[in-house]
């Protein structure tokens, strides 16, 4: 039980993790992330890497949609921009892979600013449609700008290299993808400790009074678009190094909806929400597949019968969350925390 948070300085109170249990759990979690690649097989490592890439993209979208209130269905297109940028830089420039990842983020951010321009005038569903339009325009570009993108056949990506080694196995890539993800999630959390994050939330909650408080709307909306696209770009860049080939179909429009669903299920407007949402959405279909495999000996025709059931259960889970836990998975975690705060004196 925690009686109170007796902080002696304002700085301590402004820290990212304010209580000792929080810090302990975070240390345990980080230790767990170090152990993971040594203790799971290649298949699960593949899943973990994919999950981690999705965490980056979802966190970016959460900054834009969850925190700033600008609905976007273009996140996958920005991932594609990042992936193509990495592919193109590897092929034509041969720059080091960390430079390429930053380049992927910046290229996506630049496009994100352009796509964000209508956001000063259009809101909600209208903005969502505008971002859909942008993704289809980008898809068209990927197919037809063959000298850069390789058209429909796509473009192969050379493996990421550090001096003396090529990063080709999932194990090796994990040590790039995971640290980058941790840095980006922490950076996202940091934004919301400062005036910039507060300005985003102000725009989401009540943009008129945000303006009276001295927050220039257009500048901050574009900044939010740029950050979200930067995250998508880096995620797409890592994806390119992971799968080593990028085609126009690598990032289908469904992927944007997948990411939007991830932040809704996880919890809009909380950093934790973006993370757990992406993890849940990536891992649940796989877990359900295992469930189907386990029960198949007892059910005749399991293969044909149960695979649609898997999709239905997955859909049902999402709807269940929307109905029973509209604040998302992050809220469940907060509730558990509050419970143990007073445990065992109040249960």
């Amino acid at each position: 039980m925690i009686i109170g948070t007796a902080k002696e300085s304002y700085r301590a109170d402004e820290a990212l993790l304010t209580t000792k249990p929080q810090r302990v759990w975070m240390a345990i979690f980080l230790a767990f992330l170090v152990i993971v690649p040594f203790s799971v097989n290649d298949y699960w490592l593949y899943m973990v890497c994919l999950m981690t890439i999705n965490v980056v993209a979802a966190t970016g979208l959460n900054i834009l949609t969850g925190f700033t209130g600008q609905v976007s269905l273009g996140q996958a297109a920005f991932m594609a921009v990042g992936a193509y940028t990495v592919a193109w830089m590897e092929r034509d420039l041969g720059t080091p892979f960390l430079v390429n990842l930053v380049g992927a983020g910046l290229a996506a951010a630049a496009l994100g600013i352009v796509v964000g321009i209508p956001s000063l005038r259009v809101k909600g569903l209208y903005l969502a449609i505008a971002t859909i339009a942008a993704s289809f325009i980008l898809h068209f570009v990927f197919v037809h700008w063959e000298s850069v993108t390789g058209g429909n056949t796509g473009i192969n990506v050379a493996p990421a290299r550090i001096p003396g080694m090529e990063l080709t196995t999932y194990f090796q890539l994990y040590w790039v993808i995971m640290p980058v993800t941790i840095i980006m999630v922490v950076a996202a959390a940091n934004i919301f400790r400062t005036r910039i994050g507060r300005a985003f939330i102000a725009i989401r909650d009540r943009d008129i009074s945000a303006e009276v408080l001295g927050i220039p709307l257009l500048q901050y909306k574009l900044m939010s678009f740029a950050i979200a696209s930067f995250y998508a770009g880096v995620a797409g860049g890592m994806w390119a190094y992971f799968f080593r080939v990028v085609t126009p179909e690598s990032f289908p429009f469904m992927m944007s909806i997948f990411l939007l669903a991830a932040i809704i299920v996880g919890g809009m407007g909380t950093i934790l929400g973006g993370v757990v949402g992406a993890v849940f959405m990536t891992i649940t279909p796989e877990l359900l597949r295992f469930v189907v495999e386990w029960v198949s000996p007892w059910v005749p025709n399991a293969g044909t019968l149960l695979s649609p059931v898997r999709t239905i259960v997955f859909g049902g889970l999402i709807i269940g969350f929307l109905v029973f836990e509209p604040q998302g998975l992050a809220e469940i975690i907060q509730r558990v925390r509050r419970f143990f705060r007073l445990w065992p004196f109040r249960t």
Binding site: R195, I196, L213
Partner: peptide, 18 residues
């Protein structure tokens, strides 16, 4: 805290790195 926004100077990079 939001009230102070216009008088503060933290830029995006500083914010991300805190």
């Amino acid at each position: 805290k939001l009230g102070r926004h216009a008088h503060m100077k933290t830029n995006l990079l500083q914010a991300m790195l805190y």
